[in-house]
Simulated assay, not measured.
Amino acid sequence: MVCPYSWDVPGGVMAHVRDLAEALIEDGHHVSVIAPAADDAPLPYYVTSAGRAVPVPYNGSVARLAFGFLSAGRVRKWLREGRFDVLHVHEPAVPSVGLLACWAARGPIVATFHASYQRSRAVSVTAPVLHTALEKITGRIAVSDAARKTLVEHMGGDAVLIPNGVTVRRYAEAEPLPGWGPDGGVIGFLGRMDEPRKGLPVLLDAFARLAPERPGLRLLVAGPGDAGDVLAKVPAALRDRVGVLGMVSEEDKVRAYHSVDVFCAPNTGGESFGIVLAEAMAAGATVLASDIPAFRRVLGEGRAGALFTNGDAGSLAREAATLLDDPACRSRLAAEARAAVRRYDWSTVARDVVRVYETVAATTAGGVEEESRQAAASGSGSGSAGGPA
């Protein structure tokens, strides 16, 4: 399995690869993952480093990718030694390890597409180069309707729809963080604090509107970014009511979900699924999210969580106030969320992925082999642009 983004930095695709790998291992499959990572980074036994990642602006974010001779050599070595039945590449159109793996391999190749975007100049410019890799893919998976639409419109072909997964039992029980807890007045946020599309400024604006009328209201913020920059956007009189944790461990992330009365996802766009919602739902949190299409679908159009108008701090403040004042409503939404999230449990999702593996392996002779350097350089490959869709 190939992860294009750095294993050192938490992110949706990395978490997806990690959890899928561990679900497959638990079911008795042999799994090996290659991903960008510093050579001294602590990695699970099943992960091989493809070399240190570099930050690159991509799809409204900053992606940490690895691309070059060092990474290409490590990918080829990993393929030669792995003798895999199936190669599963995540985000093969991203200029990172997944693209290198497609160029370097031939045989049964499955690709999962995560991203959703309206237009991409980078993809348009590099389309001829990408085609030499993407034509080798024999099975395609999209994690959402939005990701599938992006694939169809920008790269052609179709895909099986298999959603992101969440290990429900991992989030079900946890003690709140010290000094925090669902006491009727805690709103939470988890995401990259310095990434505009994660929507933290909208939440901070809403908090500034709510807090003066609610002396007990507090805000808990977790994720990569500069705490000072966050607090600078909060009125001075309210800063002692905002807790900024920075990047947290997996254990503390789960505890954070259990430390709030309302978990807010104010993302403004660029989301094709919303794994953070699924995690919060699995923890039994009451979710309040922007009404972007991906979040509406995950929350069942408001049945498993409340929605506010995207980018509208006033709408967020009104919906948050309603939830904070109505414990019965919060309990009802949390119960609906726990029930709804079961469809995304990895015990179900991983089996669907294995069925794609089995279909691809049955229709492609032999296992995964290293493509000859001469063939890779000339852009020749095996397989078709279609898949078991």
Rank of each mutant, 00 (worst) to 15 (best):
G11L: 01
V13M: 07
L20P: 02
H29E: 07
H30F: 00
S32E: 14
D40F: 03
G51E: 00
G51F: 05
V54D: 08
S71H: 11
F84L: 04
L87W: 02
H88R: 08
P92D: 06
A93H: 15
I109Y: 00
T112L: 03
S116F: 12
T126H: 10
I137D: 07
I137C: 10
T138W: 06
G139K: 06
A142K: 00
V152N: 04
H154Q: 14
V160A: 11
V160D: 09
P163N: 08
R170A: 13
Y171A: 04
G179R: 05
P182S: 13
G185C: 06
I187E: 04
E195G: 03
P201H: 04
L204V: 10
D205I: 05
A211K: 01
E213K: 13
G216C: 03
L220G: 03
P235C: 09
P235S: 10
A236Q: 15
L245W: 07
M247Q: 15
S249K: 10
E251V: 14
V260S: 12
V262Y: 07
P266N: 08
S272Q: 05
G274D: 10
A280M: 12
I292Q: 03
P293M: 09
R297T: 15
G302P: 06
R303F: 02
D312P: 02
D326G: 04
V341Y: 01
S347E: 14
T359H: 10
A361S: 07
A362G: 12
G366Q: 05
A376V: 11
G387N: 08
G387P: 11
